[in-house]
Design a protein around this nucleic acid. Structure first.
Lengths: 242, 242
DNA sequence: CCAAAAGTGTTGAAGTTACACCCATGC
DNA sequence: GCATGGGTGTAACTTCAACACTTTTGG
């Protein structure tokens, strides 16, 4: 039966990275509200004939036009009183058949390169865009709490598995990778040790090509070795982590 | 509104340890079923006016008579086709108002000392008891999959934080601790290396007392050093993990 | 005296940290 | 020629994995 389930929703916490800071994808409900936040995570009710992962992908596409990204579950949220702000209640009344239903939501997260995914709003999202995580303090419903939980998961995850390669251009320099790790872990890493470690892991391979047009010694370019990455993924990254 | 939500349930994966092997708390549906498993994780629908954590605690108490244990969320599960076995369908018809409803379930897990918690069945559980994890291959619904996910979470957790001390008697031997770790990680750990590591960590202190009445060399008894544990907890266990 | 678990040290390999200088380019 | 970031090696130290025999008790 292809119908919305009034009691279960999904929300997506999509982190974006731009070599400067960590951002998160939010939609603007565009509502004329006196008080209460207008920003929310993209999320909506699930259909009864789709699974949770599918629902998250679909919702992300419907609200922000972003497809085909790997989403990982954060967990389930849903205190009975998560709809406690007037603005939230009003808004639900405008978009839901059963605005008063008890909803529990399953959150998903991912980390993408901002420049690869230009969000464009549709459905009930008035606008969609990237907001710096460090400047946010309030969101609709319990979305701020969900954001914090997702951030913590991301931090744990990146410590133990080399995600982050999808954040780089196809050809990249080891310095870019270095900077990426430093900004996510939020601490300096020794240049030589970092390079050694990444190279020993074997998931990057050097191209025969260099940077051009830079006002300093041009860097060798590297690409991500997908096969090596996958074979390591299966056997576990025994010795990763900075 | 104190009513059951037809679409959301919780399931509890309670691991028990008895110095021999890892077990899990299961209920027996007691159903006269031709085929399909009779064993299931304790779980049931949530009420609309309780939060997920509360629901998990309540359900665990209702079905197995176990109260006051710390539960941690595993995540949400619920493919549309999780009710695919005839036995499961029949059983739901006997206990639910809307047996055909799409249900997503939120799983919780915990690890307790078996001897501290004698399960006693009630409600729709015919019996409740501990089953060795390694001997299980099939459970109701998607409960086997949930069990595996919970086991993996437990494994990750115990690698990075020394839980497990609430599983031991006040005074314990290093061999007991050793066995505990081996059964959770499901692999042998070198005796000497294990002892060295635990002792260097400093969260156990030797008593001036030995085992008595054992038909072999009696072991020194140890106790858990709570203060040391807490000070380490704050600063992070920098070098823990087997 | 036998069975059963307790207890104990060393060594080689691998990994981690810290650290300073020359190189290639654009302007 | 100078400013900028690219690129490289080593030594001291710590951690890790592997491995075998003696001890103490109860029966």
């Amino acid at each position: 039966m292809h119908e919305l389930n009034p009691n279960v929703s999904v929300d997506c916490v999509i982190f974006g990275f731009d070599f400067e800071k960590l951002t998160v994808l939010l939609i603007d409900r565009g509502q004329e509200t006196k008080n209460g936040p207008r920003l929310a995570l993209p999320g909506n009710l699930i259909y009864n004939d789709e699974n949770l992962d599918q629902a998250a992908s679909r919702v992300l596409d419907e609200l922000a036009g972003i497809k085909n990204i790997y989403l990982e579950q954060v967990g389930a949220f849903g205190d009975p009183n998560r709809i406690c702000k007037d603005a939230d209640r009003e808004w639900l009344q405008s978009i839901r058949a059963e605005p008063e239903a008890r909803v529990i939501t399953v959150a998903y997260y991912s980390l993408v390169k901002m420049s690869d995914y230009a969000p464009h709003a549709s459905s009930f999202a008035k606008t969609a865009g990237w907001a710096p995580v460090s400047e946010l303090f309030e969101l609709a419903f319990d979305h701020y709490e969900i954001l914090l939980a997702a951030k913590e998961k991301l931090r744990q995850k990146i410590k133990v598995q080399p995600i982050g390669f999808n954040l780089l251009p196809e050809k990249f320099t080891l310095s870019q990778l270095h900077k990426l790790y430093e900004s996510i872990l939020d601490k300096p890493l020794d240049k030589r040790n970092f390079r050694r470690k990444v190279q020993k892991l074997g998931i990057v391979t050097a191209l025969k090509e260099k940077q051009r047009g830079v006002p300093h010694k041009p860097s060798l370019l590297y690409k991500f070795d997908v096969e090596k990455y996958e074979s390591l993924s299966e056997n576990g990254f025994d010795n990763f982590g900075f």
